[in-house]
């Protein structure tokens, strides 16, 4: 059945699907982090089993974006909305995967509480949760200032991960009998750090969506991209060009 709904209705549906996806993914992350830190293997198993809903939402969002692009040829803010929807969709799906990796590390670390405490995994999990929650809220509330604040916190998560890596190396020398658990520990820390990176991507996409500015990698060279004039030679003063 052809979908002849107007663009605004499809965009409303897209926003609803995105909100559902954000809730599922952040919920899955919270559960996975809680399971790991509380060494709750039952909770972890539920996280490992709950990926299907996120995968289904990912497919629906991508399909809706494809149909909007094909049938409505969006421009300006509508085009940015679709571009960011596709990118954020991928980021969220990857966050879901990393949450599963956290869950997988729960059982191997269940008997090594001291490792979790010494490595300060809780602090990293808390920081990443704040970044992820902040990015999702900035997106839903269309708040580029909040998104920028979130982006600045990513470095904090990276530093905490580096600390955990160093601690793990030390623990592996001191406790060779726990080497397998320590591999899971660093894997879990890496998953948290990557979740922070994807959350940062969501925040960057939010700035692009709201302001039309691509701030990744130091920003776009606007002149090279054709967004400013050729300034060789005698430029015409803007005062001559501007109307009233």
């Amino acid at each position: 059945m052809p979908d002849h709904r107007p663009l605004d209705e499809k965009i409303d549906e897209l926003r609803r699907l995105q909100e559902a996806m954000l809730q599922r993914v952040t919920g899955q992350f919270e559960e996975a982090a809680l399971a790991l830190l509380e060494r709750d293997t039952e909770r972890a198993e539920k996280v490992r089993q709950s990926d299907d809903e996120i995968d289904a939402l990912e497919l629906r969002i991508d399909n809706l974006c494809e149909r909007i692009l094909a049938l409505h040829t969006p421009v300006a803010v509508d085009l940015r909305l679709i571009l960011t929807a596709v990118k954020i969709n991928t980021d969220l799906e990857r966050i879901g995967d990393h949450a599963k990796n956290l869950a997988k590390s729960t059982a191997p670390l269940a008997d090594w509480e001291a490792f979790l405490e010494q490595a300060d995994l809780r602090d990293l999990a808390r920081t990443v949760r704040d970044i992820l929650t902040g990015a999702c809220e900035a997106f839903l509330e269309e708040d580029p200032d909040r998104a920028r604040a979130v982006i600045e916190r990513d470095e904090e998560a990276n530093q905490l991960y580096n600390n955990i890596f160093d601690t793990t190396a030390r623990l592996s020398r001191e406790h060779p009998e726990g080497s397998e658990a320590l591999i899971y520990l660093v894997t879990a820390a890496k998953a948290l750090e990557r979740i922070g990176d994807h959350a940062k991507n969501i925040a960057e996409s939010t700035v692009f969506l709201e302001e039309g500015k691509d701030i990744r990698h130091g920003g776009l060279d606007e002149e090279a991209a054709g967004f400013s004039g050729d300034l060789d030679g005698d430029a015409i003063p803007p005062s001559q060009l501007a109307g009233k």
Partner: peptide
């Protein structure tokens, strides 16, 4: 707001309108 014409170009305009 006022109309915008943000292009500062190297060449002399071929056609130009003034007010």
């Amino acid at each position: 707001t006022a109309p915008e014409q943000d292009r500062e170009r190297a060449q002399t305009p071929k056609v130009k309108t003034e007010n």
